[in-house]
Computed example of a mutant assay.
Amino acid sequence: MKQITHDFTTLGNEVLNIERQAIDGLYQYIDEQFNRACQAMFDCNGRVIVIGMGKSGHIGGKIAATLASTGTPAFFVHPGEASHGDLGMVTANDVVIGISNSGETAEILNILPVIKRLGITLIAMTGNAESTLAKLADIHVSIRVEQEACPLGLAPTASTTATLVMGDALAVALLKARGFTADDFALSHPGGSLGKRLLLRLEDIMHTGDRVPSLSENALISEALLEVSRKGLGMTAIIDDNGRLAGIFTDGDLRRILDNRIDVHTTRINEVMTRSCVTASADMLAAQALKLMQDRKINGLIIVDLEGRPVGAMNMHDLLQAGVV
């Protein structure tokens, strides 16, 4: 095994310090130009088109994706491809964000005449307020950094970090201004666990009908034990003569009665059940139910209707199977 001859932890920390300073330096650029950029995108009737070349292009793609997923229709256009037909995707109703640290990227400057002719609002994100791109733009958002983390000053490092952070600031500011909600976010993220966490409601995963464990409050504890065992949810709802939820009997209640040596064959369930139990509605988000169960340190929920009648039941295992946990 080769002996390590460099202090890589020190070198890594130096990079983090430089990039932290770059982010700290951005506060001064959350200014009137930033405000104007947000307003232009907020008022846009079309889409936000993000363009950038090289590393700025990679960051631009992420910014476009973040905007699109947080309520601002957006997509990325490669400036080189734009000169060969892709500019046809851009309309007069759109807003264009041009990203270039130097502000002199030829591929972007080449398409500015078309953008200007269409009367499109142009937002420049550059590190040079005196650059061609900055001067031709309607709005200039500065992403200037004092130095790159690369000791040669050549590889975009701190500057791309600053650009990404500024892009996040624009996107999240717009998200809040639009009143964008978790449900809105879920509509553009229907796949995978994220979509499940945001879209699933208890009515989608709860046990219903004969699969809901329940029995009369006049039943014996022994009958409750059989019901818990048959339905396999670790609990049973206890209902009164009007069909409303009177309480719940769980594994925890069983442990307590065993500790107290209560006769399960002669004692009625209403003597030992938990009366003040946590319930939920069928339209509750599964993610909210998960938080409720975690906060109350319980493993299952009885779902009731507006009249307090049990209509469903679920436990942590159901959330796990649904991909919510």
Rank of each mutant, 00 (worst) to 15 (best):
T161M: 12
F180P: 12
F185G: 11
A186S: 15
H189R: 03
D184M: 13
A155L: 04
G209D: 14
P213E: 09
G243V: 09
L154W: 02
R256L: 00
D253S: 04
G234W: 14
N218R: 13
L152E: 04
A186D: 13
P190K: 08
A237T: 08
N242Q: 10
D184P: 11
A246V: 08
I239T: 10
A186Y: 13
L233V: 11
R178N: 06
G234I: 10
R144D: 04
A237P: 07
R201G: 07
G192M: 14
N242E: 09
T163L: 08
G191E: 13
L233S: 07
D259P: 02
L200V: 05
I143D: 03
H207Y: 01
L215A: 14
I221T: 11
L164V: 06
L202C: 05
K231M: 10
T181Y: 13
H265P: 00
S229G: 11
K231R: 13
I221D: 09
V141T: 05
R261E: 09
D263V: 02
K231G: 12
K231L: 12
I221K: 12
E217H: 13
G232D: 15
E148C: 02
L202G: 00
F249H: 00
R201P: 04
L225V: 07
G192N: 14
L245W: 08
S216I: 01
E217N: 12
G247T: 03
I239D: 06
Q147D: 02
R211D: 14
N260K: 06
A246E: 08
E148H: 02
L164G: 08
T208A: 13
C150K: 00
S159M: 12
G252S: 04
V165E: 09
